[in-house]
């Protein structure tokens, strides 16, 4: 889901890797911790880890989905 979400908000930092396994990779376009939207839709516990601290971001810790972190969606 991180791929879909990142594409929708037009950051496009999650890409299909050009290898035959086609893993999803996060590239330098990612603006974390400014943007944390993908974390709220990732279903794979422990699959996204904060580099600095090594802590798991999935499921997302409470402080990354506070009101001021959310991406506004308007019709």
């Amino acid at each position: 889901m991180c791929y879909v979400v990142c594409r929708e908000i037009e950051i496009n930092a999650v890409v299909v890797a050009p290898s035959s396994q086609h893993f999803l990779e996060i590239d330098e376009r990612c603006t974390y911790p400014g943007c944390t939207v993908c974390l709220m839709y990732c279903p794979a516990e422990g699959s996204i880890v904060e580099t600095k601290t090594g802590r798991s971001m999935v499921p997302p810790p409470q402080e990354v989905w506070t009101e001021n972190k959310r991406w506004p969606r308007v019709p």
């Binding site: 709220m40 499921p59 959310r70 506004p72 308007v74």
Partner: peptide, 15 residues
Amino acid sequence: LDKWVYPTGFTGPGV
């Protein structure tokens, strides 16, 4: 609910 339902990435009418 705590892990997967309530964490929310957007605000707006959809949420």
